[in-house]
């Protein structure tokens, strides 16, 4: 059983530091704020799933650094942002595996949806100093894919409704999220 943490930042800048010594899932929701997150994987064999979702209205950034300080540790980072207006949203995502940490898995998946002509940037970095590591990154900036919208619309769903469903699914991107803990964030999605 993993430890589950919920973090909700509402219009504020925040810093977090975690030492992961047991299997952990962190759901981090942010409404128009900048965050700086530092994570150390300190105990052999532990895993971390980090789900970050943010709704952005101004110029903001999100920095996350995951350092694998122990062997056989596993991190999966999912960062999903919606840049609503014509502002800047920047993600700095660092995955670090030190030389003495072997057999680690260090993955990151970053996506920002631009609702207008905002300037979004993703800087994915994987700094791997050990040969026996499985590590991947993905980054996407843009709007929802037209092929997906076509599929949804071909079932009678209007473009507006399809976009709304996609926004919900994109920002609440795990089936196991307890929605009662993030009511404010869910309300905010309706305002986009």
């Amino acid at each position: 059983m993993s430890k589950i943490l919920y973090v909700l930042d509402d219009n504020k800048n925040s810093n977090y530091k975690y030492n992961i010594n047991e299997d952990t899932i962190i759901y981090h929701f942010s409404i128009n704020g900048s965050s700086d997150v530092e994570i150390n994987m300190v105990k052999e064999g532990v895993s971390l799933y980090y789900y970050y979702s943010n709704i952005n209205y101004d110029n903001n950034s999100f920095k996350i650094k995951v350092t694998h300080l122990a062997s056989n540790t596993h991190s999966e980072i999912f960062n999903h942002g919606v840049n609503v207006y014509n502002n800047k949203l920047t993600y700095f995502v660092d995955g670090i595996v030190i030389k003495s940490s072997s057999k680690c898995i260090c993955n990151q998946d970053n996506q920002i949806i631009n609702m207008n002509d905002g300037k979004s940037t993703i800087c994915p970095n994987l700094l791997i100093d050990n040969y026996d590591v499985d590590s991947n990154h993905a980054a996407y900036i843009g709007s929802f894919k037209e092929d997906i919208l076509f599929y949804m619309m071909s079932r009678g769903i209007s473009r507006e409704k399809a976009n709304r469903l996609l926004l919900n699914g994109f920002l609440i991107n795990s089936d196991s999220i307890d929605k009662s803990k993030i009511g404010k964030f869910i309300d905010e999605i309706k305002n986009i």
Partner: peptide
Amino acid sequence: MQDPMVIEGISNSEFLRTARSE
């Protein structure tokens, strides 16, 4: 469709219920 889309984050039930209501 020949190659139906995969859409993460939207459940089959949510999708179909919305489609039917539309």
